[in-house]
Design a protein around this nucleic acid. Sequence first.
DNA 1: GAACTATTTTGAACGCTGTTCATGAAGCGT
DNA 2: ACGCTTCATGAACAGCGTTCAAAATAGTTC
Lengths: 213, 213
Amino acid sequence: MALDKEEISEKVLAIAEALLNEGGAENLKARTIAEQAGISVGSVYNLFADLDEVHRAVNMRLLDRLGATGLAAMADLERQGVTDVQHRILAMAAAYVRFVEAHPGSWPAVLAFNRRRATRPGPDAYDALLDALFDIVAGVLKAGDFGLDDDRRALAARTLWSSVHGIVTSGYVANSNSRQAEEIWHQIELLVGVFVKGLERGGAFAHAETKPE
Amino acid sequence: MALDKEEISEKVLAIAEALLNEGGAENLKARTIAEQAGISVGSVYNLFADLDEVHRAVNMRLLDRLGATGLAAMADLERQGVTDVQHRILAMAAAYVRFVEAHPGSWPAVLAFNRRRATRPGPDAYDALLDALFDIVAGVLKAGDFGLDDDRRALAARTLWSSVHGIVTSGYVANSNSRQAEEIWHQIELLVGVFVKGLERGGAFAHAETKPE
DNA sequence: GAACTATTTTGAACGCTGTTCATGAAGCGT
DNA sequence: ACGCTTCATGAACAGCGTTCAAAATAGTTC
């Protein structure tokens, strides 16, 4: 026998990721996978319950990879002795931007998939991976000496990262390409600058006067 | 004849929006629309070139409605004599959150649709509607007397609004419900507070030291 | 009103999709 | 060699978007 069961699974996932990357979720077809992997349609369903599970598995790999590049970026800065909070957050954001650009089709598919999942059942391994990303940001914020307790620092980390995420994804809704990358980076610089200054100044957690509904 | 051509189109769009709202893009089926509208499948394709055009038309309606509620919220504050920038931005964010909550299925579908569109052709009426939203935010920022020229104010508006958008959409990736709404609002309060303080303090536009790639 | 033309509505039909499952091939212990 | 288990196979099914020849309807002219 040439290939182990797990080896074939990985081959399938690699093919699936490529398909997602070039055509989005609607390009992930059982027959295409089978053909490219040199197996039959039925065998795909032998390895994975359905295409959703294939998609989920691909997403796991992506989230894992994103976490790894984030940690690597932090380790790089550590090695260079960079401790400045703004620097480090910008570096993380840059890593995120590069990652999204490197996965033009499959990363949007992760988001769309997650959105469908929102109505479905309970939490699972997905959230653990996302939380890991937030924890990295929270760790960076901990280094900067704002007067934040753990809860507020966690809130700040989630807020900051969701904002970066929004900038990146909103940015790619529009059309241009090279100019778009610049625009996104300008927005991120502004966001991070304002965020750090706002936290330094303190009082960011004073209760606002307006609440919805 | 009971219904005009345009009346039937609107009926179809109302049905389509309902379908999108309860089941996302994959719930928008030609046969379901036809059945619920009391016409045949072929007639749907007589009114719209394909389902994508139906989806696009629904999205237009949603974006229009979102712009209208945003303007209405601003008009309300004007009537109450509220001029505080932070107040007004929070009110806009609240309007956006309410809108997203009111369209749990169809709004995500707008985003997913936009993402697919990103790889496709040139700009169209979509972008005009999105720009209108940014302009409202930019108008609010103009009232606040930061030392911003038009370009920088526009950048700040896009940054702020993309961030709010990211918080709202990221928030609904996770699971909980009532607690999730609170979390989102806390993040928005923090973001807006930090943003306004950062802009007031000035210097947010100083060049950062790190750039990607 | 009748006859003719233009327009619109219709739903069967086509090709594609995800998914299933009876069938058969392949491994494996004895 | 035999039975037993496990796995790979692809034809078959239901459902999808989309098309288009034919039927129904509307409109026009006498």
